[in-house]
Structure formats: structure tokens, C-alpha cells
């Protein structure tokens, strides 16, 4: 009895430099299974710059273009243009950036590409901080989380930037969230993105066990809990208008504490802090439900 139906093709090889239980590595493995071998990956500065391996080695069985931090979307646009001019419309161009390169440093080039509706898939694997440089806060770091630049006494005071809302506001043809705990959903979304012309954006929650201060074996469990607690609902938005909810389907969610208590980066939270986070999540969930209702 299979729980998932994953394509068997393996385009991410072993020997890569991801840490134990790396959510970003698992995300890449699924993304390439879905995208197939006729794919060019564009990677700006992020964990995957390291994970892929040092010159002249690579752990991916597809071409990779390593590029500067702020240029994932624009470099991908360039690769797309070069392919188009050769008459190659078959090859998928996949920009693969972390949360720093997406939420913060690469935001303007991403916005530009989205505004031009460049025919690329942009996947942000979000581990919620600048992890490979030493766990510094990013615009994706959640409210009240610990990082090395937001220590426990003054944890991050700002809520996580709503990158999905920003991308949806560009009215791109397809935007969706995914996690490594739901591989079938993830793969379906990449395949769907492949079938659509224009800028497709996927926001993938990719737990980082060292940065989140959690045991490596909980990488998938944490992603699953993020969905079950509505911290990270799985949904799709077509043409910036039509909202489709995938998970969680249950009327009742697990309390956010179930998710927070497993991670050392939240160990300093008080009951009041947890309630504040819960309120934030409830509010966002209600807004999402409204958007889903209004578009159906």
C-alpha cells in the first residue's frame, strides 16, 4: 500500500552537502522529479549554492546556473529568452531561491519578472532565515522566533512577510504553497506550473533542523504540523483571483503550540507570546477562508 505516488526518476544525486534532515534538499528532490530532466535550474546565493557542491562538481543531474543573490528571477528570465530565441519552448526554467533571495534581496528582480510575466517557475524554499551564513533573521523569519541576530531577549518583533500576497498582487497565472510533508501535492503543483505559460511561483516551507533547533528526524513532521496548525496552509491561486484550499481540510486545527514546542527557536516563548502567535494565525486563516469563499 503506497501512501504517495512519486515519479521514480532521481535527478538529485547523493553526496550533496545538505545537513542531516535538510528540508531544502528534499524539496529539490521532489521539484526535479516533477519538472523532469529537461530543466535548467537557476540558483542565486542560498543554502543550495553550497548543497549542490563546489566547482567543478554538482549533485544535480540537470544544468545549473549559479548566479548572484538578487538575480534569480532575472537570470532565469535571461535563460528563458536565450532558449526561446533558439526555438526551444520545451525546456523548463526553474529559479530556485531561498527565503533571503526571495523575500529580501531578490524581491525587486522577482517583482520585475512577475510583472513581465516571464515564462519561468520560481520556487522559494523557505527555511525562515539566512541559514548557511549562520542563522540570521530574514523577512521570512516568523514572529518572535530566535535567530542569531534576534536573540532570545529581543526575538524577532515583526511578523513574517506575506510573500504569497505580494506575488498574488502581481496577478501571475499561478501561485501555490507546498511542503515536504506532502510530496504528492508538491509534485502535482510543480507539474501544474509546468503546464501553464507565464510566471509561476511556489512557496515551499522547508524546515532547517539546525536553524530551527530541532532534531533532524523531525524535518517532515514539522512540515506536517505547520499545515495541521494552519501556520502554513496549502493552497493555490490562479490568475491572482481564484483561491483553492488543499490542506488542512479539517474544521478544527491543532493549536500552534503543538508546532512551536518542538523547536528550540521558540523555546523562550511565554503563554502570552504563544497566544499572540495563535491570534495572528487565526486572523490569516480567516482571511484565506474568505478569499477561498469569495472565489468559489
Amino acid at each position: 500500500m503506497k501512501n504517495f505516488t512519486l515519479p521514480s526518476e532521481e535527478l538529485m544525486g547523493s553526496g550533496h552537502l545538505g545537513c542531516q534532515g535538510c528540508g531544502g534538499a528534499l524539496a529539490m528532490r521532489y521539484a526535479l522529479k516533477a519538472a523532469g530532466d529537461n530543466t535548467i535550474v537557476v540558483i542565486p546565493a542560498c543554502c543550495w549554492t553550497i548543497i549542490a557542491g563546489p566547482f567543478p562538481y554538482t549533485s544535480l543531474k540537470v544544468p545549473v546556473l549559479h548566479t548572484a543573490f538578487e538575480t534569480a528571477a532575472v537570470a532565469a528570465s535571461g535563460v528563458r529568452a536565450a532558449l526561446d530565441i533558439q526555438g526551444n519552448t520545451e525546456t523548463t526554467v526553474l529559479a530556485w531561491a531561498g527565503d533571503g533571495g526571495t523575500f529580501d534581496i531578490g524581491l525587486q528582480s522577482l517583482s520585475g519578472a512577475a510583472e513581465r510575466n516571464e515564462n519561468i517557475i520560481y520556487i522559494c524554499y523557505d527555511n525562515e532565515a539566512y541559514m548557511n551564513t549562520g542563522i540570521q533573521r530574514s523577512g521570512a523569519t516568523p514572529y518572535l522566533a530566535w535567530t542569531t541576530t534576534t536573540p532570545e531577549k529581543t526575538p524577532k518583533a515583526e511578523p513574517k512577510k506575506d510573500i504569497m500576497a505580494i506575488m498574488i498582487a502581481h496577478r501571475i497565472p499561478y501561485a501555490a504553497t507546498a511542503t515536504i510533508a506532502h510530496p504528492d501535492d508538491f509534485i502535482r503543483k510543480v507539474q501544474k506550473a509546468k503546464s501553464i505559460y507565464g510566471t509561476k511561483f511556489l512557496h515551499v516551507l522547508a524546515p532547517c533542523p539546525p536553524g530551527w533547533k530541532a532534531p533532524s528526524e523531525w524535518a517532515v513532521k514539522l512540515s506536517r504540523l505547520a499545515v495541521q496548525t494552519r501556520v502554513f496552509p496549502l493552497y493555490e491561486v490562479e490568475d491572482g483571483e481564484r483561491y483553492i484550499l488543499n490542506e488542512p481540510k479539517e474544521d478544527r486545527a491543532l493549536p500552534v503550540s503543538e508546532y512551536l514546542k518542538l523547536q528550540g527557536r521558540f523555546s523562550h516563548l511565554t503563554e502570552k507570546d504563544i497566544q499572540a502567535i495563535q491570534d495572528l494565525i487565526d486572523k490569516r486563516w480567516q482571511r484565506l477562508m474568505r478569499q477561498v469563499r469569495e472565489s468559489s
Binding site: 544525486g13 547523493s14 553526496g15 557542491g53 567543478p56 562538481y57
Partner: peptide
Amino acid sequence: MPPMAVSLADMGHNRT
């Protein structure tokens, strides 16, 4: 070395 940085082999030698 190649004129630009191009990967020439996989990471299979890296026995993690």
C-alpha cells in the same frame, strides 16, 4: 580549467 566555472562531474565521490 574550463574558461568559465562549469561542473564537470557529480558529487558521488563525497561519501557523506
